[in-house]
């Protein structure tokens, strides 16, 4: 059934969408409050920052690496910008804030990229180290104070909504920064689909040596990837600070594995070479919907971590088993043997 196969999507996006819709239907039946614009808007709001971060991680994972420093990069660049603005008392508007923190994010990403690409070191280990360095450097040299008040332009932005709807259960707001997530998602999608850079990412992730021999500039692409991750993460950092209406340097840090889990759930292969923006969006949404519905059904929030873990194991387990079956059907022993051991 070719049409069904197409619906399933290259990275199981179809299956994911089905699970997501099924969950929404069940939730709406169990608790009619769930099926409302308010819930939809609040889920979209809480999805914004994780989604932007997940898109950054998607790029790294497609290129065959893994990055655990991105939450620190996000918060460090945004917090540094806010601290500078407050200390030197200047405020040239929101675009400048984004630009400033994007520059800091780019520099931090460049450090990651150069160390990884130049010395061919394992990405997990390097980003683990830079995570400590960036975090320590921010708290030591920039500051560890919590800023309850943001610069005026940012605090103005934090109350801007694109849509205000009055519904039967009160007012529903859709925050303007949701649009930022949409724009970033579209840009990353275009980047992966239409540019040479996107092609190089998939090629390098699929086979590093193969890509190099085919003439891809692997080192340059890798460095650029990490710079881009830094930039995208820094946008998420600013969005987070604006939406939480305060700047806390300890925020976001520690959530890296949750974001990676969402990306992997979205069908990206941890070995590289596979992954899509659509899948990532669905993966992040699924986790947020589960989060939201657990609370609505009355399951204590404490179960959330366990639920995400089970979902991850079941999702990956199904993918692994079906991939192995497919590999066995085609030909080799080699493919059947690899899943047991090596890790990228």
């Amino acid at each position: 059934m070719p049409s069904l196969r197409r619906l399933q999507g290259r990275n199981n996006e179809g299956t994911l969408l089905l699970v997501l819709i099924g969950l929404c239907v069940i939730m709406s039946l169990l608790n009619p409050v769930f099926f409302s614009i308010n819930t939809a808007f609040s889920i979209m709001r809480s999805t914004t920052v994780p989604l932007i971060l997940a898109l950054a991680v998607l790029l790294v994972i497609i290129s065959g690496g893994i990055d655990v420093s991105f939450p620190v990069v996000a918060i460090a660049s945004a917090y540094t910008s806010v601290t500078l603005m407050l200390n030197f008392d200047f405020d040239y508007g929101v675009p400048v804030v984004f630009l400033m923190s994007a520059c800091i994010g780019a520099v931090l990403g460049l450090i990651n990229g150069v160390v990884i690409a130049r010395f061919r070191l394992p990405t997990l280990i390097v980003t683990l180290a830079t995570q400590g360095i960036f975090f320590g450097a921010m708290l030591t040299y920039v500051g560890s104070r919590y800023h309850p008040d943001l610069p005026p332009s940012m605090s103005r932005l934090s109350t801007v909504n694109v849509v205000n709807v009055v519904t039967s259960n009160g007012k529903a707001y859709l925050h303007v920064l949701v649009l930022l997530a949409v724009v970033v998602a579209l840009l990353v999608w275009g980047l992966l689909k239409w540019t040479m850079f996107g092609r190089s990412l998939y090629a390098i992730g699929g086979d590093y040596e193969g890509a190099r021999r085919a003439g891809f500039r692997v080192v340059r692409t890798q460095v650029l990837t990490y710079v881009l991750v830094g930039v995208i993460a820094s946008l998420a950092g600013v969005a987070h600070i604006v939406m939480s209406r305060s700047a806390n340097p300890q925020d976001l840090v520690g959530g890296e594995l949750d974001i990676i889990a969402a990306v992997v759930l979205g069908g990206a292969s941890i070995f590289g070479g596979r992954g899509s923006v659509l899948g990532t969006v669905l993966g992040v949404l699924l986790i947020q919907v589960i989060n939201n519905s657990l609370l609505l059904v009355g399951v204590p929030g404490a179960w959330l971590r366990a639920a995400v873990g089970i979902l991850l194991i079941v999702g990956i387990g199904i993918q692994t088993v079906s991939a192995r079956r497919k590999a066995r059907r085609v030909h080799s022993v080699e493919d059947a043997a690899t899943p047991a051991g090596k890790e990228a």
Binding site: L257, D258, G309, L312
Partner: peptide, 8 residues
């Protein structure tokens, strides 16, 4: 995954 489950 098991980290999340066990921690949860």
């Amino acid at each position: 995954g098991t980290m999340q489950i066990l921690n949860g």
